[in-house]
Amino acid sequence: MYAVNFLILAAVLFSIGVFGVIARRNAVMVLMSIELILNSVNLNLIAFAMMNNSPEGHVFALYVIAVAAAEVGVGLAMVLMIYRNRRSIALDELSVMKG
């Protein structure tokens, strides 16, 4: 099995996730795209762990999974709060940070 297989798959998933982050209007969808990005990174980590036959890559992947879980929890809570306050989670209507 070639290393590039995993790496290219991860790269493609990453790019698709990036596209989702840029293109999606719904905040929940953006969070999903971020999950795609994180998973592609995990794939990379596992591939490299396999390449070096060492457990460190696995451990890092587990860290990423844990952080991703935390991120989703907080992210969705924020989305809920935004929804409660504004009755909408469309990101392009949120421009409080406009300079």
């Binding site: 990036v18 982050v21 953006v30 940070m97 300079g99």
Partner: peptide
């Protein structure tokens, strides 16, 4: 340069990536 600070998260994401 002001509209770079549009406040739109997607745009920030596009710029970032």
């Amino acid at each position: 340069l002001q509209p770079v600070q549009s406040g739109k998260v997607n745009q920030y994401g596009a710029l970032l990536f």
